[in-house]
Computed example of a mutant assay.
Amino acid sequence: MNCPICGAALPSQTTGRPRKYCSNRCKLKAARMRGSRRSATDTKPRHRISNGELDDIVNGPPPDYEDSLRLVVRRLTAVMESPDTSPRDLAVVSRQLIDAARRLDAVKDDGDTLTDIFSGTDTPTGIGMDMV
């Protein structure tokens, strides 16, 4: 039998599991090749933007500051609630969410609370709102 990496003949063994590679060098090279193949095929974006949202961003009128802040708050809330978000990232995201919510409160003309940002959406309002 030959090594699948370099093609060299495998050393003969009398005991133990049969060798798959001729040396540690080939074994490590195979592991690196498997790892690079996995990372290239298994990567998925954490948060996707829909085609409609992309069209609105590209072709729509530029949003005003308040609308931009509302969008930031919605997206940060979605990131906080996503199961794909790493626990170590939650503190940073929550600080950004609180900062964006405070800025939005400062620029709002009508004095409404932040809960109206989420009216008409599927996004729950519970995360971070008690901290604002």
Rank of each mutant, 00 (worst) to 15 (best):
N2A: 10
N2E: 13
C3Y: 03
C3K: 04
I5Y: 02
I5F: 03
G7P: 06
A8M: 12
L10I: 05
L10C: 04
L10V: 04
P11M: 03
P11R: 04
S12P: 09
S12Q: 14
Q13P: 02
T14N: 09
R17P: 09
R17T: 14
R17S: 13
R17W: 12
P18M: 06
P18T: 12
Y21A: 00
C22Y: 02
S23N: 03
S23C: 04
C26N: 03
K27R: 12
K27S: 12
K27V: 03
A30N: 13
A30E: 08
A31L: 11
R32E: 15
R34G: 08
G35K: 13
G35Q: 15
S36M: 11
S36D: 09
S39W: 01
S39G: 01
A40K: 07
A40I: 10
D42W: 07
K44M: 07
H47F: 11
I49T: 15
N51F: 14
G52I: 15
G52N: 15
E53V: 02
E53Q: 14
L54N: 04
D55G: 13
D56G: 15
I57W: 07
V58M: 09
V58W: 08
N59Y: 08
N59D: 15
P61G: 11
P61C: 06
D64W: 04
D64V: 13
Y65F: 15
Y65S: 08
Y65K: 13
E66G: 10
S68N: 12
S68F: 15
L69P: 05
R70E: 10
R74I: 01
R75P: 00
R75M: 03
L76C: 03
T77K: 00
A78G: 09
A78D: 13
V79W: 01
M80T: 08
E81W: 02
E81M: 12
D84K: 07
T85D: 01
T85V: 07
T85A: 06
P87E: 12
L90Y: 13
V93S: 00
V93N: 09
S94M: 11
S94R: 15
I98T: 14
I98R: 12
I98D: 06
D99F: 05
A100N: 00
A100H: 00
A101D: 06
D105F: 09
A106P: 00
A106K: 06
V107Y: 02
D109Q: 11
G111W: 02
D112P: 02
D116M: 11
F118A: 00
F118K: 01
T121Q: 02
D122I: 12
T123Y: 02
P124A: 14
P124F: 02
P124E: 11
P124C: 04
T125F: 03
G126D: 06
I127F: 10
I127L: 11
I127W: 08
G128M: 00
M129R: 05
D130Q: 10
D130R: 09
M131N: 10
V132D: 01
V132N: 01
